[in-house]
Simulated scan of single mutants.
Amino acid sequence: MPDPISSDPKSSDRPSSDRQTPLMELSGISQIFKTKRGDRPAVRDVNLTVNAGEVLCLVGESGCGKTTTARMAAGLTKPTDGTVAYNGQDIWSMDKDQFTEFRTSVQYVHQDPYASLNPIRSVYKTISAPLRKHGLSKGNDDSWKQASELLRRVDLTPPESYLSKFPHQMSGGQRQRVAVARALSLNPKLIIADESTSMLDVSIRVGMLNMLGRLRDELGVGFIFITHDLAIAKYFGWEGRTAVMYLGEVVEYGPTQQVINDPQHPYTRALLNAVPEPDPDLAAQKLPGGGLRSADIPSLAALPSGCTFHPRCPLFEEGLCDVTSPELSLIGSRREVACHVVARESGRAAADASVSVSG
């Protein structure tokens, strides 16, 4: 297990004038979908950053806004409010050439390997298409050579056994590796992996994660890694950061090691409680229902007042949590948590510690 992340203030996640510009920065982005039955606020006021070569994990239950946030980050959907900046520039103020460069630098790996590949294209045509479109190959021989090398990078060897195949002739894991090879064809700086291992058998999931980790280390590629499973976030993003989302908002954000080992928000604790535990004795210690007051997730059409998590929260305080919406507050030096009770208790603990030191 890696050593704990340094608490050096220079490594703070907050923007600083003496720090390099983040590779990608999401500032106050929101997405409201218009429907016949009214507006649906899928994502609300999300602020996240990803640095070069870093892993940012987005975790939460299905429907919490992870994929919508990722689509805005990739430039596939324009946010209703807020800005998406790539290397410090708002992507929606870029000219055509700049936006094309951004779209080649940020690649998307979809969840379903059965639907993300064109069934009538061979593996070679799938991988060589972006090379040809962007002028990165010189003729058929060069395209074949580059496609072969990309397949080697994703551990599909020998490549000659796969280049002429079609998607229906491969397993789910092999298809997903082809999707990753296609994403790598344009030498991206950031890959957005949207539940890219959730549809794979457990037996090949670890191999896929190891392959992605190796590419991250060898190529210096950053990742926005979306998953509903905190165990996977821990495995893949241990040295990165994790943002926990609930009903379109970030409720906890910080170094993955801190979020996993010492969760502060009651929703994060419930997610960790839901991770399967093979040890029967440890499994017996888990709280029924994650310790939540309710298993029902509120509808986006009728969000609860105050903190949207309060109908399910074991720390609920009437007159506070159901009245005022909490903001992300700094807990410690590098963690942010959106919870009235946690922020209050953290403030008291810090004050007591200060008094103790001064005394």
Results as ranks from 00 to 15, higher is better:
residue 14 R to S: 12
residue 271 L to E: 04
residue 160 E to D: 12
residue 103 R to H: 09
residue 303 L to F: 13
residue 143 S to H: 11
residue 328 L to W: 11
residue 92 W to L: 04
residue 116 S to H: 08
residue 48 L to K: 10
residue 252 E to G: 06
residue 99 F to N: 14
residue 85 A to E: 11
residue 30 S to W: 07
residue 202 V to G: 09
residue 59 V to L: 01
residue 89 Q to D: 08
residue 75 G to Q: 07
residue 16 S to Q: 13
residue 46 V to I: 07
residue 11 S to A: 10
residue 219 L to G: 08
residue 161 S to L: 06
residue 197 T to P: 08
residue 7 S to R: 13
residue 217 D to H: 02
residue 255 P to Q: 07
residue 332 G to A: 11
residue 200 L to P: 05
residue 62 S to K: 05
residue 205 R to H: 14
residue 219 L to A: 03
residue 171 S to R: 14
residue 175 R to D: 09
residue 245 M to P: 01
residue 298 P to V: 09
residue 208 M to K: 01
residue 254 G to E: 07
residue 264 Q to Y: 02
residue 172 G to P: 09
residue 103 R to W: 10
residue 85 A to T: 13
residue 265 H to T: 05
residue 93 S to I: 05
residue 244 V to D: 02
residue 254 G to C: 12
residue 122 S to L: 09
residue 20 Q to N: 05
residue 10 K to I: 14
residue 125 K to N: 13
residue 340 H to Q: 03
residue 3 D to Q: 06
residue 332 G to P: 02
residue 342 V to P: 10
residue 269 R to D: 01
residue 247 L to A: 00
residue 206 V to G: 04
residue 213 G to T: 04
residue 28 G to Q: 12
residue 77 T to N: 04
residue 352 D to C: 07
residue 119 P to A: 05
residue 14 R to K: 11
residue 186 L to Q: 13
residue 304 P to F: 00
residue 162 Y to L: 09
residue 41 P to D: 09
residue 77 T to L: 12
residue 325 S to Q: 12
residue 237 G to V: 00
residue 332 G to S: 11
residue 194 D to E: 13
residue 4 P to L: 08
residue 283 A to N: 04
residue 306 G to A: 05
residue 212 L to D: 11
residue 316 F to S: 03
residue 308 T to N: 01
residue 225 F to K: 02
residue 179 A to Q: 15
residue 221 V to Y: 08
residue 149 E to G: 00
residue 6 S to R: 04
residue 137 S to V: 15
residue 328 L to D: 12
residue 217 D to K: 09
residue 338 A to W: 04
residue 77 T to S: 14
residue 275 V to R: 03
residue 20 Q to W: 00
residue 331 I to D: 11
residue 118 N to F: 08
residue 207 G to C: 04
residue 187 N to S: 09
residue 288 P to A: 01
residue 259 V to C: 12
residue 216 R to D: 07
residue 16 S to M: 10
residue 352 D to S: 08
residue 253 Y to P: 00
residue 126 T to F: 07
residue 230 L to S: 00
residue 307 C to Y: 10
residue 62 S to P: 04
residue 293 R to S: 15
residue 306 G to M: 06
residue 94 M to Y: 03
residue 23 L to G: 01
residue 120 I to Y: 15
residue 85 A to H: 06
residue 158 P to V: 02
residue 245 M to S: 01
residue 129 A to E: 15
residue 122 S to N: 02
residue 84 V to H: 08
residue 162 Y to S: 10
residue 180 V to W: 00
residue 56 L to Q: 10
residue 233 A to Y: 00
residue 131 L to S: 13
residue 212 L to S: 10
residue 41 P to V: 04
residue 90 D to P: 02
residue 290 G to H: 01
residue 307 C to D: 09
residue 196 S to L: 07
residue 53 G to T: 10
residue 155 D to C: 05
residue 136 L to G: 08
residue 235 Y to L: 02
residue 136 L to S: 06
residue 198 S to C: 15
residue 208 M to D: 04
residue 171 S to A: 06
residue 16 S to G: 14
residue 293 R to W: 06
residue 288 P to N: 06
residue 207 G to A: 10
residue 330 L to V: 11
residue 48 L to F: 13
residue 206 V to E: 11
residue 226 I to Q: 05
residue 165 K to V: 04
residue 314 P to L: 05
residue 317 E to M: 13
residue 261 N to Q: 06
residue 198 S to W: 15
residue 98 Q to N: 04
residue 233 A to H: 01
residue 359 G to L: 09
residue 208 M to W: 04
residue 133 K to Y: 12
residue 207 G to P: 00
residue 296 D to C: 03
residue 230 L to P: 00
residue 8 D to H: 08
